[in-house]
């Protein structure tokens, strides 16, 4: 019955029957205890004096006013899962670094965490899971706190970086506009200067020479704005990680990563260089292959990048790839 009503009128508070038509600023709140939807004024009215029972029929949960919040997702089950996730993740917040990069352990940890979320969400062994959560929290209080702190710092530094980037971009755009304007002014000046000089000079002067000399002076006029822009670009290039904004610890890891990257070999798609001694040679003119040779003559194939020698190479490559693998010996 309740459900039916809810679906019937989404914008009506089931407690006081006010709806959006009469009070347009109606706001619904839910409590993570039972996720029943109650309008703001009802919450004020019922729970101002302290904890009280949920006004929904058949719901005997005791709710507190300070736990009420606005519903973000339309679907209550989603809302519930997101809440649970938030709660569990705040406690189980180890990162890969805490496991010294041991992926297996970390994956196991994640799996455990996911199990807890799933069980809590689906009401399986809730008591046991809550117990697990509590004991874990007790045992790892310091670590959890440290991790939370770190997340906070990370997000802050990220925000700062974004802010910095934004400012830089703004500056860049301003400078660019300035340069553009100056260039336009310069052009205008050059035009006028040429006309002026030609009118004042006598006939013996070569017109082309005058024009060239004026243009040269314009070129030499490198505006201060341009210089600034170049400097800015240089700063951006030299400092891709905005080191100034990072805390010293992160800076160190960043340095380590840079060092490692320098030591690494250049990237190769196969994790190592290909062996260049092929077992075959592609000799186009020796092959008689009516099918492929026909394709070469057709425009729609050549236009889209069809190359006969590539095709031959690929076919031959596949012919000799794996020829030396002796499965019965290698897999024994």
């Amino acid at each position: 019955m309740n459900e039916y009503e809810e679906e019937e009128n989404k914008d009506m508070c089931p407690i006081c029957k006010t709806d959006r038509y009469l009070s347009p600023d109606l706001k619904f709140l839910v409590n993570p205890e039972c996720y029943h939807k109650i309008c703001e004024s009802c919450v004020d009215r019922i729970f101002s004096l302290g904890p009280a029972q949920c006004p929904y029929k058949g719901c005997d949960k005791i709710l507190r006013k300070n736990k009420f919040k606005t519903q973000i997702f339309d679907d209550v089950s989603v809302e519930k899962e997101v809440d649970i996730r938030k709660r569990v993740f705040n406690v189980f917040n180890k990162t890969l670094q805490d496991f010294n990069g041991n992926l297996d352990e970390y994956n196991k940890y994640l799996e455990d965490r996911e199990d807890i979320v799933y069980n809590l969400d689906h009401g399986i062994d809730v008591d046991k899971m809550e117990e697990k959560l509590r004991t874990y929290e007790e045992l790892n209080k310091q670590l959890i706190q440290a991790n939370l702190e770190r997340f906070k710092q990370d997000t802050e530094s990220f925000k700062q970086r974004q802010q910095f980037e934004k400012e830089m971009k703004l500056k860049k755009r301003l400078l660019e506009r300035q340069i553009e304007e100056e260039e336009r002014a310069n052009k205008r000046w050059a035009k006028r200067e040429i006309v002026n000089r030609l009118t004042t000079s006598n006939l013996s002067v070569d017109t082309n020479e005058v024009i060239d000399s004026v243009k040269n002076t314009v070129k030499l006029k490198k505006s201060s704005a341009r210089r600034k822009l170049e400097e800015l670009n240089r700063v951006l290039q030299n400092n891709p990680y905005f080191g100034a904004n990072m805390n010293p610890q992160n800076n160190k890891t960043m340095m380590m990563m840079m060092m490692q990257r320098r030591q690494l070999e250049p990237f190769t798609p196969f994790n190592g260089d290909r062996d260049l001694n092929q077992r075959y040679v592609v000799t186009r003119d020796q092959y008689e292959d009516p099918f492929i040779q026909d394709l070469e003559k057709r425009k729609e194939y050549t236009a889209s990048g069809f190359r006969v020698d590539y095709t031959y190479d690929r076919l031959l490559n596949e012919a000799f790839r794996g020829l030396g693998c002796i499965i019965s010996e290698e897999l024994a």
Binding site: G272, D273, R274, R321, G322, G324, E330
Partner: peptide, 19 residues
């Protein structure tokens, strides 16, 4: 840099799921 062993075509086949 001491180069690791070159990757032959047979090695590529050995990496395939079929193998």
């Amino acid at each position: 840099i001491k180069r690791p062993k070159r990757v032959t075509d047979d090695d590529l086949y050995r990496r395939s799921s079929q193998y």
